[in-house]
């Protein structure tokens, strides 16, 4: 069934709205869970909304220059763009966004769009600690990309396609068809990469609070910070949806999507609560050891 471009745009925007709100709530829930693990009462789950409104409502603002100004725009474009290129709900023509423009390689490389813009913006901020954070982030990302790429190669070969939609399609028909069970090595490698991508402990030295005050966004505040926060919530959901599509059979309804992506994201939070922090050089080496082995196994036994 073909739908008009306008419908498509409207549904995509609606999807974005849903994801944005879900992301904010999910962030609240996750923080609540972390608080409960620590034995605290924790924030109200709508706290992310308040924080966001507060940041947008700041009265003063400074700018270090054009690139500093554009940094959050790049970052948020990266997040929203990634959302637009990922199919959300399997089987529905309305929730495919613009995923027909490219395939998983587009998604892999589009991740960098926001990162690069943010890095440049923070760079113009001139805070040396931001650049330390960026250098750590980029370094960590290179290592994370290895198992991720191997996992993607593996499932691309497994399903004979690079299209995310087709990969989801191939996993339909029961839980036994999920990549999780048909190609466990790829999933292990991929989920390791997911931990690195989400930057929870033990891989959160990039933004190490207090140490380098907060890494790349040290100079960002007010509306900029609001945009970065908005991006963060969208991006977390989108990344989780991507991994859901690749490894966990995708979703045929919003409910399924919310449940699955919640648990996928929860894995990183769970591990983050349990483990201490790695230094960057440890992270790089670690990703080139165990996850790499699983990645290689994944492409060898596909």
């Amino acid at each position: 069934m073909e739908i008009s471009l306008l419908t498509k745009i409207l549904f995509s925007l609606l999807g974005l709205f849903i994801v944005f709100n879900y992301g904010l709530l999910q962030a609240g829930v996750m923080r609540k869970i972390v608080a409960r693990v620590a034995g605290r009462y924790g924030i109200p789950i709508y706290q992310p909304y308040i924080d966001l409104i507060k940041n947008y409502s700041k009265r003063t603002q400074i700018t270090h220059g054009v690139m500093f100004y554009l940094g959050p725009v790049f970052r948020f474009s990266g997040g929203i763009g990634l959302f637009f290129f990922i199919p959300m709900i399997y089987g529905s023509v309305y929730w495919q966004n613009f995923s027909f423009s490219g395939d998983i390689i587009l998604l892999m490389y589009f991740q960098f769009f926001g990162m690069l813009g943010m890095a440049l913006g923070a760079g113009e901020g001139g805070q040396p600690n931001s650049i330390i954070g960026i250098s750590r982030g980029l370094a960590q990302f290179t290592a994370v990309e290895v198992p991720f790429t191997l996992a993607i190669i593996s499932i691309a070969v497994q399903y004979d396609t690079l299209s995310v939609y087709d990969i989801v399609a191939a996993q339909q028909g029961g839980i036994q068809n999920w990549t999780l069970f048909t190609n466990p090595f790829a999933v292990i490698a991929g989920m390791f990469a997911f931990l690195g991508l989400m930057r929870h402990a033990p891989f959160n030295v990039v933004m190490a609070p207090q140490e380098i005050p907060i890494g790349p966004p040290t100079e960002y505040h007010s509306t900029y910070l609001g945009m970065l926060q908005s991006n963060r919530v969208v991006l977390h959901i989108v990344e989780a949806v991507l991994f859901m599509n690749l490894f966990f059979g995708g979703a045929t309804s919003w409910l399924e999507l919310i449940i699955k992506s919640f648990f996928i994201y929860f894995i990183t939070v769970f591990i983050g609560v349990v483990f201490p922090r790695y230094r960057v050089d440890h992270t790089v080496r670690w990703f080139l050891k165990i996850p790499l082995v699983f990645g290689i196994l994944a492409v060898l036994f596909v």
Partner: peptide, 22 residues
């Protein structure tokens, strides 16, 4: 920040940089 007092429930949290703190 400890369970006993838990300022988070009031929407209070620490920020490491003055730019983001109010």
């Amino acid at each position: 920040t400890t369970p006993r007092f838990d300022m988070y429930r009031y929407g209070v949290q620490m920020r490491p940089t003055p730019r983001q703190a109010c």
